[in-house]
Design a protein around this nucleic acid. Sequence first.
DNA 1: CAAATATAGTTAGGTAGCTAACAGATGTCA
DNA 2: TGACATCTGTTAGCTACCTAACTATATTTG
Lengths: 155, 155
Amino acid sequence: MVANGTTDPQHESAGAWAKKYHLASRTVMESILRPHDLGPTQWYVLHHLAMVGETSQRDLAGLLQVERPTLTGVVSALVRKGLVVQEPSSTDQRQKMLRLTRAGAALWRKLPDPIALILDTAFDGIAASDVETTAHVLRTATGKLQELLSKGTPS
Amino acid sequence: MVANGTTDPQHESAGAWAKKYHLASRTVMESILRPHDLGPTQWYVLHHLAMVGETSQRDLAGLLQVERPTLTGVVSALVRKGLVVQEPSSTDQRQKMLRLTRAGAALWRKLPDPIALILDTAFDGIAASDVETTAHVLRTATGKLQELLSKGTPS
DNA sequence: CAAATATAGTTAGGTAGCTAACAGATGTCA
DNA sequence: TGACATCTGTTAGCTACCTAACTATATTTG
């Protein structure tokens, strides 16, 4: 989307470019995962379960920074495909623990790592210090926006 | 979302931060616009019609970088609320021209500018040169990802 | 201990985006 | 001029996210 009053595309704000970068990287990730019939969030769930092991849905929602209802949908898709099992925790009947099935672990081993590919492609050839500056600026900017959100947002 | 093998949140990649920044800014924009019962894309449409005047849906889709079916939905929401009128172009019966109604123009005058607020908040106090570096890095990275997409994406 | 409160997950309904397929209007050219 | 191609917008059906409201369990507390 056009950022602001400015219409010269070369001079759009860092904010507008963050959005475009995000959309492009999501599109790349989707096109890499499509042949495996997985969405990006599904991939992140498998990634976490493969790396860390059994995890509750609650914890996973926090780690993946999505809301619980979103994770409900993602997890039920993975369960439907037989990649993940979901069972009540033995200590707290409210919580459901997730882990990979044998099929899920087997699929994981064959899967490419879209995040590594994206980062390698996107930032290849750019000075490391510039990439660091970018991460720093975006981290700071994100912090300020979250601060704005936590204080009531003015209309 | 967690970027990669790394779990230390201070050391996530520029890519991960671009995503977080984007999500935070979208959330701020939504929370500013919610009291006015508008979504971000609806705001951009009003913005354009208020600034530039009568525009065809085709041109608007290009300017806003969304697909035509997406704009169909956004525009029909605005028409339903009585903020925008949609009528066939006199010179090309395929095209529909959009313009603000009196109510749409009146609402526009009362609306805050969420983009200005977000940019002011997010990048306030950060060195202008660093913000420029960020825009440059993200622009370059986005270009590389789009290049990757246009060549067939490997699995 | 019983009642109130908090937490985990689901369901319902919404927004915003996409692609594919289509209808109608316009353009091209043999 | 008539047939074919292209363009514009819509519809249908998908993904992925959100909030609000619900159910069922745990926990806190009077």
